[in-house]
């Protein structure tokens, strides 16, 4: 365990070990920096300073109001299309072995993809100007 050959061959879970190390390093860096800035900086809090910034005018209401539905729609569409894109990856990697048959199947898949795409376009899901 933890030998060069084991770690370098990209098939074992241990090849992810350096990533864990890096994660620890990154966490450490971020944590230390955050603490440092916390202790180093001055602390002179006033209520004006703690108010949220609204270009100098009085703060009005809560900012957390629902935003335009378009953004949600984009997020939802992303989820759907992203998952379809993910399907291309295993295909792309094995694309040469699958040959023309695989290509035809993929064409069908792309056709469905484009069908959905065309549908949302026509439905105006991506129309941002009102």
């Amino acid at each position: 365990m933890f030998t060069d050959t084991e770690l370098l061959s990209a098939t074992t879970p241990f090849s992810y070990f350096p990533i864990v190390l890096q994660l620890i390093a990154a966490l450490g860096f971020v944590g230390i920096t955050m603490l440092a800035t916390h202790f180093l900086g001055p602390k002179r809090k006033t209520s004006d300073k703690l108010a949220t910034f609204e270009s100098g005018i009085e703060q009005k209401g809560n900012a957390r109001q629902p935003v335009a539905i378009k953004y949600f729609l984009t997020a939802i569409l992303f989820v759907l299309f992203d998952v379809e894109v993910i399907f291309f990856y295993p295909y792309a990697v094995n694309f040469k072995e699958l040959g023309w048959d695989g290509f035809m199947a993929m064409l069908l898949f792309v056709a469905f993809f484009m069908g959905g795409f065309f549908y949302i376009l026509k439905k105006g899901a991506l129309k941002w100007e009102d």
């Binding site: 569409l77 989820v79 759907l80 992203d82 998952v83 379809e84 993910i86 295993p90």
Partner: peptide
């Protein structure tokens, strides 16, 4: 993979 796709569809609808 199928579960992920279906979960994505569910996420879309659910959200």
């Amino acid at each position: 993979f199928f579960i992920m796709v279906v979960a994505a569809a569910e996420v879309a609808v659910g959200l």
